[in-house]
């Protein structure tokens, strides 16, 4: 866990409302040796899960059924919790407070995901 480059055993919280994508993510992350601790597809759930400390990094979709998850991201930033924002939006949509956060544009490649996770863990 301390070795940021090594994702083996890394606990990941998935916040994603698209079931297909979250299923793929679980497969891909497990292939990488990560352990998915939870998948949240609703804002309240995401909120609650994000406040727990049973994960090393969160994969946080910016939009959950039309609702922004920026407050969650900001809160995690406050608590210095590592996270990766995933979004179909352009980067320009990010509020100023989240500039500098690691962002993955959908769709992304497996290697992009890996790099982002490492990046987030470094930054965090």
């Amino acid at each position: 866990m301390d070795d940021a480059d090594n994702l083996e055993g890394c606990r990941v919280l998935i916040v994603e409302d698209d079931a297909m994508i979250s299923m793929m993510l679980q497969d891909v992350l497990e292939d990488m040796g990560c352990r998915v601790v939870a998948v949240a597809s609703r804002l309240e759930e995401a909120q609650r899960r994000s406040e727990a400390d049973d994960f090393d990094v969160a994969l946080l979709d910016v939009n959950l059924r039309g609702e922004h998850t920026f407050p969650i991201a900001e809160a995690m930033l406050q608590r210095r919790r590592p996270f990766v924002l995933t979004t179909g939006y352009a980067t320009t949509i990010l509020p100023d407070s989240l500039h500098g956060a690691t962002l993955l544009q959908k769709p992304y490649r497996r290697q992009d995901l890996e790099a982002a996770l490492r990046d987030a863990r470094h930054g965090g």
């Binding site: 297909m20 994508i21 299923m23 793929m24 993510l25 891909v28 979004t87 179909g88 939006y89 959908k106």
Partner: peptide, 24 residues
């Protein structure tokens, strides 16, 4: 446009996931 993009990208991501799952 952002919404459109968001949906296009999410759809592409879904298709990507679908393919990945299909041929897994």
């Amino acid at each position: 446009i952002q919404e459109l993009n968001h949906r296009v990208k999410n759809t592409l991501a879904s298709v990507q996931a679908l393919a990945a799952q299909t041929f897994r």
